[in-house]
Amino acid sequence: MADRNLLTLDSALAARAAALTPNATIVPTHYEGWSHFTEGADDLVARFREAGLADRLVFA
């Protein structure tokens, strides 16, 4: 995306955003169910694990 005006966050950007709120529990939404999604829950968990934040993810 050339202009970087994002409508949603990918897994890596979500992990970066979560790092800005160290006491927040992160409840992912809109990560599955549409064929145009390029990442799913496994990708999200992997990026959060790499960032040391996986313990803050709670899937509802």
Results as ranks from 00 to 15, higher is better:
residue 1 M to W: 07
residue 3 D to T: 09
residue 3 D to N: 15
residue 3 D to S: 11
residue 3 D to Y: 05
residue 4 R to F: 13
residue 4 R to K: 15
residue 6 L to P: 00
residue 7 L to Q: 12
residue 7 L to A: 14
residue 7 L to D: 15
residue 7 L to W: 09
residue 8 T to C: 13
residue 9 L to F: 04
residue 9 L to R: 01
residue 9 L to V: 03
residue 10 D to N: 13
residue 10 D to F: 02
residue 10 D to E: 07
residue 11 S to I: 00
residue 11 S to L: 01
residue 11 S to N: 05
residue 12 A to D: 05
residue 13 L to S: 14
residue 13 L to T: 08
residue 14 A to P: 01
residue 14 A to N: 00
residue 14 A to C: 11
residue 14 A to D: 00
residue 14 A to F: 00
residue 15 A to D: 01
residue 15 A to P: 02
residue 15 A to G: 05
residue 15 A to R: 00
residue 16 R to P: 03
residue 16 R to S: 06
residue 17 A to H: 09
residue 17 A to W: 11
residue 17 A to N: 10
residue 17 A to Y: 12
residue 18 A to I: 04
residue 18 A to L: 05
residue 19 A to I: 07
residue 19 A to P: 03
residue 20 L to Q: 12
residue 20 L to W: 05
residue 21 T to D: 13
residue 21 T to K: 15
residue 21 T to Y: 15
residue 22 P to H: 10
residue 22 P to R: 11
residue 22 P to A: 11
residue 23 N to G: 15
residue 23 N to W: 15
residue 24 A to R: 08
residue 24 A to N: 12
residue 24 A to D: 06
residue 24 A to E: 07
residue 24 A to Y: 11
residue 25 T to N: 09
residue 25 T to D: 09
residue 25 T to W: 15
residue 25 T to G: 11
residue 26 I to V: 15
residue 26 I to L: 09
residue 26 I to D: 01
residue 26 I to S: 02
residue 27 V to L: 12
residue 27 V to I: 14
residue 27 V to H: 14
residue 27 V to R: 08
residue 27 V to N: 08
residue 27 V to S: 04
residue 28 P to G: 02
residue 28 P to V: 02
residue 28 P to Q: 02
residue 29 T to F: 14
residue 29 T to I: 15
residue 29 T to G: 10
residue 30 H to V: 04
residue 30 H to A: 14
residue 31 Y to I: 03
residue 31 Y to V: 02
residue 32 E to H: 09
residue 32 E to P: 03
residue 32 E to Y: 10
residue 33 G to K: 06
residue 33 G to M: 13
residue 33 G to L: 11
residue 33 G to H: 13
residue 34 W to A: 08
residue 34 W to R: 15
residue 34 W to D: 07
residue 35 S to T: 15
residue 35 S to P: 05
residue 35 S to W: 14
residue 35 S to N: 14
residue 35 S to V: 14
residue 36 H to E: 12
residue 36 H to V: 13
residue 37 F to K: 03
residue 37 F to M: 05
residue 38 T to M: 11
residue 38 T to S: 15
residue 39 E to G: 04
residue 39 E to N: 08
residue 40 G to Y: 03
residue 40 G to H: 05
residue 40 G to C: 05
residue 42 D to C: 13
residue 43 D to E: 14
residue 43 D to H: 12
residue 44 L to C: 03
residue 44 L to H: 01
residue 44 L to R: 00
residue 44 L to I: 08
residue 44 L to Y: 00
residue 46 A to M: 07
residue 46 A to C: 06
residue 47 R to G: 00
residue 47 R to D: 01
residue 48 F to N: 01
residue 48 F to I: 00
residue 48 F to P: 00
residue 48 F to G: 00
residue 49 R to P: 01
residue 49 R to Q: 07
residue 50 E to H: 07
residue 50 E to Y: 04
residue 51 A to Q: 12
residue 52 G to Y: 08
residue 52 G to W: 10
residue 52 G to E: 12
residue 52 G to Q: 12
residue 53 L to Q: 04
residue 54 A to M: 12
residue 55 D to M: 14
residue 55 D to W: 10
residue 56 R to I: 04
residue 56 R to Y: 03
residue 56 R to H: 06
residue 56 R to A: 04
residue 56 R to W: 04
residue 57 L to D: 01
residue 57 L to W: 03
residue 57 L to C: 11
residue 57 L to T: 02
residue 57 L to I: 11
residue 58 V to K: 14
residue 58 V to H: 10
residue 58 V to M: 14
residue 58 V to P: 02
residue 59 F to Q: 07
residue 59 F to T: 03
residue 60 A to S: 11
